[in-house]
């Protein structure tokens, strides 16, 4: 199976002076030799804590940020090498859904105008055809034609996210990069939007890169999950395998930290300390200072991301020996 999207050795470093009184520049490696592939029609989850590089990865793929090095192949074409004019028609096929639907919708534009924009850019239509397309779009996302003349502030958070999804669908994309699409929503609404994302995936044969920090949501919606820590993928594999038998101690720690809505469960082993600064990452395995299984090799040698079982890779020296089943 040829992947729809293939990311190879992607790197991105930011130069930062933040937090330094002397203004000295420091290098922050946000994305470090990242490689993964997306198969057509699947949903791959990208999870990790703030600053792990998951959102940066999404932006690098769409060239909203320029990578330092590496390759991103979409249908075999290297997105990072092609010209902006060649990129534009491909951008139509790759759309993004953002976390905060309010800040991604222009407050001074009516919904009808917001949803017409993608057509203007990618696919000019006659007025009657446009009207028909907009009506269809609204129906698909569970809104109605009366909403076209309203402004974003007149909608609830869930409805605004429906508008964001309609805008992404307008140009009939193949790939959708969704960056925390449900994390700003109330619990009862979150489930509505997750169901909607799954429905339109089936209907329009979409492929999703689903960036999120909520592990229960990611497990529910994703076929495969990649866990990131300090700019690297430390584990990638089928969603249920990852949750039932994680092969990296960081994945285990993340899962342990999720509060479960079942009272009276026994206490869990908690991860101590905080994520180290990406400006000065630890030697060897970046997770070793917080890892409860760490041995001396972990302090010196960076473990490569290696296949442990079919389709399940982990970057841990002891992935084969540790039993972290849940």
């Amino acid at each position: 199976m040829t992947p729809l999207l293939k990311v190879d050795n992607l790197n991105k470093t930011f130069i930062t002076t933040a937090g330094l009184a002397n203004g000295k520049k420091q290098r922050l490696q946000a994305v470090n030799n990242l490689s993964f592939a997306l198969i057509e029609g699947e949903t791959l989850g990208l999870v990790g804590e703030s600053g792990c590089g998951k959102s940066t990865t999404g932006r690098l793929i769409l060239r909203l940020l320029e990578a330092d090095s590496g390759e991103v192949f979409y249908k075999g074409e290297n997105l990072l090498k092609i010209s902006r004019s060649r990129l534009r028609p491909l951008r139509r096929e790759m759309q993004m859904i953002f976390q905060d639907p309010f800040s991604s919708l222009n407050p001074r534009m009516r919904i009808g105008d917001i949803l017409s924009e993608p057509f203007k850019i990618h696919k000019p239509l006659a007025a009657t055809d446009l009207k028909r397309e907009l009506k269809n779009l609204l129906e698909v996302v569970g809104l109605s034609v009366e909403h076209l003349d309203r402004y974003p502030h007149e909608f609830s958070g869930g409805q605004r996210q429906r508008i964001g999804i309609a805008r992404a669908l307008a140009v009939k994309p193949n790939l959708i990069i969704a960056d925390e699409p449900v994390s700003a929503l109330d619990v009862s609404i979150q489930a509505q939007i997750i169901n909607l994302l799954q429905d339109i995936q089936k209907e329009f044969k979409l492929t999703y890169l689903f960036i999120a920090h909520d592990l229960a949501v990611v497990q529910h919606i994703c076929d495969r999950v990649a866990v990131m820590y300090l700019g690297r993928i430390v584990e990638i594999g089928p969603a249920l395998n990852i949750y039932r038998r994680p092969l990296h101690p960081y994945t285990e720690a993340l899962l342990n930290a999720v509060p479960i809505p079942i009272p009276g469960r026994p206490g869990r082993a908690l991860l101590q300390g905080e994520v180290p600064s990406p400006i000065n990452p630890p030697s060897g395995c970046p997770f070793h200072p917080r890892c409860r299984y760490a041995k001396s090799i972990c302090e010196t040698d960076l473990p490569p991301l290696e296949q442990q079982s079919t389709g399940h890779e982990s970057a841990c020296h002891f992935a084969k020996e540790l039993d972290m089943s849940r």
Partner: peptide, 20 residues
Amino acid sequence: ASLPRLGEKRDRLSPIDGQV
């Protein structure tokens, strides 16, 4: 009912209809 749960795979979630 609307919560996705770790370690359980369901086809669909059961949301509450309507708006907050």
